[in-house]
Amino acid sequence: MNWFGQLVLAYIAVLGFGLIINIPRRALNIAGWIGTLTWGAYLIVQAFDGGVVLGSFIGSVGIGVLSNLAAHYKKMPSIIFNIPSLVSFVPGSQAYQMVRNFALGNYRAAIGFTLQVVTITGAIAVGFLVAELVNRLIAFCLLQWRRFKLL
């Protein structure tokens, strides 16, 4: 699958999840673009052999920061943007393999997949934490900038 097709699919998938959780229609396009951009970042990390965990981390940092910017721009809560955008980063394949191997009694393989699911989910959570830090930093810089401009 070439990278362009992947990006289009990422946009479509985010749009679909946005429809399922009923985000406002005028937020759908931006949420889709956030999903596309961050999936692009993930693909770049993959191209440099960065691994799934680092890719998910960078993707979730991007989602957190871009969602916050979009929330300010559109004056809507930021969860409207970051929940649908995250759908392509869900470790669904690994979670399925985990369940399958546990059910079939291949416990060694199952534990391997469990660890993968845990590390990817953890990377996404830490990514959100870092994004929160970046968001505060951006807000602080904007505040300082405005203050100096006023002075």
């Binding site: 699958m1 679909g16 999840f17 429809l19 399922i20 009923n22 669904g92």
Partner: peptide, 26 residues
């Protein structure tokens, strides 16, 4: 009541399942 009609949610489900399968499984 919930403002989103069911058919639109089903379209959403279709848009999520197909593309993500291709992205995950190549």
């Amino acid at each position: 009541s919930r403002s989103f009609p069911l058919w639109l949610q089903l379209v959403g489900a279709a848009l999520v399942s197909g593309p993500l399968m291709i992205m995950f499984r190549h």
